[in-house]
Amino acid sequence: MKRLSWFNVTSLTLGFAFLYLPMVLLIIYSFNASKLVTVWAGFSTKWYGTLFQNEAFLDAAWVTLKVAVISSTFATVLGTMAAYVLVRSGRFWGRTLFSGMIYAPLVMPEVITGLSLLLLFISIGLDRGVMTIVLAHTTFSMCFVSVVVSSRLISFDRSLEEAALDLGCSAFDAFRLVTLPIIAPAVISGWLLAFTLSLDDLVIASFVSGPSSTTLPIKIWSAVRLGVSPEINALSTIMIGIVTVGVITASLVSKRNSLRMQREEQAAERPA
């Protein structure tokens, strides 16, 4: 077995400390009784109390959640279609443009995407609100979904689809009954990625949201521009907590599944 050298131990320790210390401090200070960052005035959960009484935050959270669920669902459908087209459709007219439009939003500065979408919505006279945010989020997150799904499709054994066709499926049935169930984990992670991107987005939402549709990041943004706020610390802690629990659960579940799979495969090869 390999042993870590001192250099590696040090770089890993410092590296992960750098990655995690800011978040840990944020969490600690969310339980500070004092409003000031400088003074530790004892443990308190009062900021969580005031957070849950803050109607504006709760409203924004609701809008954000709504936008995230709708846009990530649309993005998953469109992104999966796009991935299928990219991986399976071979050559068609305008394929280069199509793949360009899939990959470009991944590296596009958000300010440009936001600006261009806003100008589009204005020029077609679409009122800014939840609808426009959903459209914007669907557009950029479908590209992320399609990258995730297409990398799974590339490694997908095509003979499975051919077997389904051979056994009498139409192309659509083959996708519904064979391809989709097998690539489902990638589609689900695509959805989760789209959901997180939507929850997280500040810049694009700032451009395309209307006065009645403030999302949580916009709300947080206007609060933190004025400096540190204990309520935001509390909110951040909740969000970090949810993400951490989610990611750890997901990785434990997938690790358990792959271990079980391995065990069963080994058991199957042993003569009974």
Partner: peptide, 12 residues
């Protein structure tokens, strides 16, 4: 009908 080289059994 065809029997595939990889068997192409539906894993799910």
């Amino acid at each position: 009908n065809m029997m595939f080289q990889s068997y192409a059994l539906f894993p799910h």
